[in-house]
Design a protein around this nucleic acid. Structure first.
Lengths: 169, 169
DNA sequence: ATAAATATGTGCGTAGCGCACATATATAGT
DNA sequence: ACTATATATGTGCGCTACGCACATATTTAT
């Protein structure tokens, strides 16, 4: 009976991701890690192929082909990175627009599940989830991975720590 | 700032599903809806191809091929259904064993995220999630879909309603 | 100046899935 | 009873998303 909570959270998470992924596919016409890639690339300027690979948890070639698809969809451009071997990934105007749609669709999908709760209940839930995340043992890369779909316009101070293994002692 | 809760739940759900899917792939060596199919087939005796299709949200042919893979992995058998055109899907002994591993792996994956909370916090969280699920407007088929990975040994009384659209009036 | 590390791109194969079509059985209408 | 329709499954074909192994270019270390 003590595992009931794990089962409930598992079921809720599945329902949440089903809705997020369905919306994402409708927005960008693609599945897998492609929507997440668009969001991650838009996070800052000059994302490289290799950093993207580690954040998405894909193989190198898988990432190159994923970027190929984004480029052929005119959502992303490959520019020269300062390092000469690096490729700097930049969103096109259309890519930035799709990214915004994607983020809005995701928030809307989750909100539609949440709005059966009262405002007080939502606040309670937010506090619990924030604590849950804040106490995880995550590295900086883990955080990027978990937050690869996050809306940076909404999530001001991410609760996830970024110092796993830093006091290696 | 009011969307913060939606973003948090989205991030948590992604983290939960990442871990569940990774564990499932390690157990059955397959991804996509294949692990869920194994769980659903084990739910009761004589699941049909068509019911499975609707629960998993796949196309008809996709479902047939999915079952082909389960059969070739010796996890599932196709037996004659009473209806003559139906196929009755049954787990083999090895399929039932894999299913149990799958369920255990899922509970363990979620628990590893949850155990940073105190017992009281987990109880609070369980209450909130149970309420959230109980107030959704779900049909019986929606419920099967959301619960397609659920552990029936753990989830005694599912909070999800099953009466969407029954008072059509 | 050479070796090793880093970053990207490519040939090839596979898993997972959908569309359109074909087939078999059951049910309904006359 | 006989045809028409609905239901359930299987198949040919193609595509998307991905990984492995290999090749290439640039940077850093010795």
């Amino acid at each position: 009976m003590e595992n009931g909570i794990a089962n409930l959270l598992g079921a809720l998470s599945l329902a949440v991701m089903d809705r997020i992924e369905q919306g994402a596919r409708e927005v960008v016409g693609r599945g897998g890690e492609t929507p997440a890639a668009l969001i991650v690339i838009g996070y800052g300027q000059g994302m490289t192929n290799d950093k993207l690979r580690r954040i998405l948890g894909l193989s190198h070639s898988g990432t190159v082909r994923l970027v190929d698809r984004l480029v052929s969809d005119r959502l992303v451009e490959r520019r020269a990175g300062k390092d000469g071997r690096e490729v700097a990934l930049h969103l096109t105007a259309s890519g930035a627009a799709s990214r915004n749609e994607l983020l809005a669709s995701r928030i809307s999908a989750v909100t539609s599940l949440l709005d059966v709760l009262s405002s007080a209940e939502r606040k309670q839930l937010a506090t619990l989830i924030r604590e849950l995340l804040a106490r995880q043992d995550t590295s900086e890369m883990d955080r990027f991975t978990i937050c690869r779909m996050c809306d940076d316009r909404v999530c001001a101070n991410c609760p996830l720590p970024t110092n796993k293994g830093q006091h290696a002692r």
